[in-house]
Design a protein around this nucleic acid. Structure first.
Lengths: 131, 131
DNA sequence: TCTATAGTTAGCTGAATGGCTAACCAATTA
DNA sequence: TAATTGGTTAGCCATTCAGCTAACTATAGA
């Protein structure tokens, strides 16, 4: 059975390897052949190709072959997916901080500032899902 | 020998798992004990604890134990590291697109718009490193 | 003090990862 | 046509990963 990975799993997974991040960085500067991409790395080609395949499966990279050379290019939409997820989490985090600050301020002005342990949470007990 | 992982490797690696992403999302809403965190997951505690440890090693989460309960909280700086990397790549990508557009415009106005294959690259052959 | 709670440690498993070599196409180029 | 170039396929190996159970420790509560 095909091991149903979510897109975010694959994108973050792909980016968790320094070789693959370097490939992505290189491709930001423009498309390139497999050979060109592999050149800076002290690694056998088949090993390197596996990285390319991981990047393709994650959607971060696409490639097509013309003649005997395969040309790779970036698909920035895929990267945007990961970026969005991170920004979203930060937004939630910051909103909470704001609420917390407001809460502390409120306590302060009513002169009851004791026993402040944690900010009010609106997601008590909810199961959180992301994809 | 300790397998020297870069911080970005660890952060992206940690986020490549849906359970761990869910934990991060939960912690965005405020700190929580291991038990609270584990509750929504149909998973044995020791398995769950491994995820917590991965998150801690990546720097995304910190925890401290008081009495018999361990409380976890988010360390958003670690998440910012990943976000920064992504934004940086996007910046490079977009700068390249701009240059490309300018290049095409230039060709267009000089009426030589044939054979346009790839935008000019300023990083030809350079080895790119990220950490 | 007894018992239940909240983690923790140790050790097992099967699958996935990241690397390799050897051998094999298929398109260029000489 | 022969040789070179640029990938590709197949298969091996060691390590890591994500899950499990069983047994243990240490605090809190009755």
């Amino acid at each position: 059975m095909a091991n149903q990975l979510s897109r975010l799993d694959q994108v973050f997974g792909a980016l968790s390897d320094p070789t693959r991040r370097a490939i992505v960085m290189r491709l930001c500067a423009g498309e390139a052949s497999v050979g060109e991409l592999a050149d800076p790395f002290a690694m056998a080609l088949p090993s390197f190709m596996k990285h390319i395949r991981v990047l393709e499966e994650s959607g971060l990279v696409e490639s097509e072959k013309s003649g005997r050379v395969r040309t790779c290019r970036l698909r920035p939409e895929a990267m945007a997916g990961a970026e969005d997820w991170l920004q979203q989490q930060r937004a939630i985090w910051e909103a909470r901080l704001d609420r917390f600050e407001a809460y502390v301020m409120a306590l302060k002005t009513t002169k009851k500032g004791r026993g402040v342990k944690r900010p009010p949470s609106t997601t008590k007990g909810k199961v959180l899902r992301d994809d």
